[in-house]
Design a protein around this nucleic acid. Structure first.
Lengths: 249, 249
DNA sequence: TAAATAGTGTCTATCAGACAGTATTAT
DNA sequence: ATAATACTGTCTGATAGACACTATTTA
């Protein structure tokens, strides 16, 4: 593999070790959703080697003709029919993973750029025997490659952000009710949150605006409907301060 | 789920698009240090195309025979003679960078994994006309590739962590005095910090321990010396709570 | 003894956490 | 009326931020 793709003859005094040994760049997606009041992750059973038959995060190899961020979108689109989800880059992993045994990919050196994708509750996915949501806590212990670690990192990232941002709202279709948001944060953090304090702090953060409507769902008082206010993210007071300090410069 | 991962003849039903088009994987290092009570970054003037003669972050192509995290260490070692610095991965960038014009690397598709490296104040580096520290605020506006953006992201990461971790201490050689730590945080945050509050909060965080010695430096009362306590990181009370919540699960 | 640097204490406003009852709807 | 769900207010302890003086050394 010589990896020559110079559009012109640019090589006057080029990088000493050029062309470098090219590597294989994969992307893997930790796609999370709200599943029955718990956090769910999309897994895919690999139909071919390596790790044939093993559950894995959906992923693909990045193509030379697409932007890096486009690769995880294409993976979600082609494997699950998902489009327009909120995504953010997590981290990049390689072989060998820190502190683990078997290496990322038996086929050779592969670096994998992991992404976190947040899929709104109720979004239709092309599920099947070999592609479906798992409650995160019931996911198979052994995933392909080092996907178990990547999954854990993705969940941890979302939990961390739940403490100081409204990122988890991407898991709800708009408009939503405050009880739904409350249940969402409890699911994300796997933790009980006092209703009164939660509502007080969430409303004080100013990330929501009322639609004016309410939603009737069976018995009980109807809940007011909200949507996200554009560009609003920080939730706790401390983190609003931090964000202001950083942004305001 | 069968999960056989045969090191043997593997290619029975392999990935459809295998082998994928390989890409070039670079690593770039945002190496920061304390420079005359300001934050400094190590830059390198590229001696060859592309961007010949332009200042850039030190970097290299990752080799197939090394772990990904080893590449930025090799880059620092070979270009600047630096070893054993604290490093953490920042993010991965590619062509085209979000919202910019010229593309990462004119030679073809390159993804770059960026690292943050913290070099203790006073560490000797093999500096020259073409490799030296710049105060971050005096760094050239135009760096090669999208290194300007990567540098900004690295500084922002360090500043964010300065609010809730003792990561910046990696910029000081041990042992150090509290006035030095104070000056360090002021340099990192480019902000005045009240001495009394700073000392109160830093000591309350329990990340330091006294050595018992003091350091005499010219006139004035000698300062007590401290070292980092092993494994201690969180600084503010809020972030200790956050860290506990996340870790304690 | 003057100049330089290291070190210390209090008050206040804000916020997170604990806690229980009222309001509105369907049946 | 009963059951179900939505919604609300207060108190307390902890903490971040504002603020000015004393202590110890060298020259």
């Amino acid at each position: 593999m010589t990896g020559d793709q110079p559009p012109e003859p640019v090589m006057a005094r080029d990088e000493p070790a050029w062309p470098p040994m090219p590597l294989h760049v994969a992307v893997d997606v930790v796609a999370l959703t709200l599943l029955d009041d718990r956090l769910g992750v999309l897994l895919w059973r690999r139909p071919y080697a390596p790790f044939e038959g093993t559950w894995a995060l959906p992923g693909t190899f990045s193509r030379p003709d697409e932007g890096l961020d486009a690769s995880p979108r294409r993976a979600l689109q082609s494997k699950a029919g998902l489009a327009d989800v909120v995504m953010e880059q997590l981290a990049t992993y390689d072989q060998p993973p820190r502190g683990s045994a078997p290496g990322r990919d038996p086929r050779g050196r592969v670096v994998s750029v992991a992404y976190l994708a947040l899929v709104p509750d109720g979004t239709q996915v092309a599920s099947s025997e070999d592609l479906r949501w798992f409650p995160v806590e019931d996911a198979p212990e052994e995933l392909a490659f080092d996907h178990g670690r990547i999954l854990a990192d993705g969940v941890e990232r979302l939990q961390a952000k739940a403490h100081y941002s409204s990122l988890p709202l991407a898991l709800l279709p708009e408009p939503f009710t405050l009880p739904e948001v409350h249940a969402l944060y409890e699911a994300v953090l796997a933790q009980d949150l006092d209703v009164r304090n939660f509502r007080r702090d969430l409303l004080a953060a100013g990330v929501l605006e009322e639609t004016g409507d309410t939603r009737v769902a069976g018995p009980g008082r109807p809940a007011r409907l909200y949507r996200r206010r554009e560009g609003a993210f920080a939730v706790t007071a401390e983190e609003r301060r931090v964000a202001d300090r950083i942004r305001g410069r």
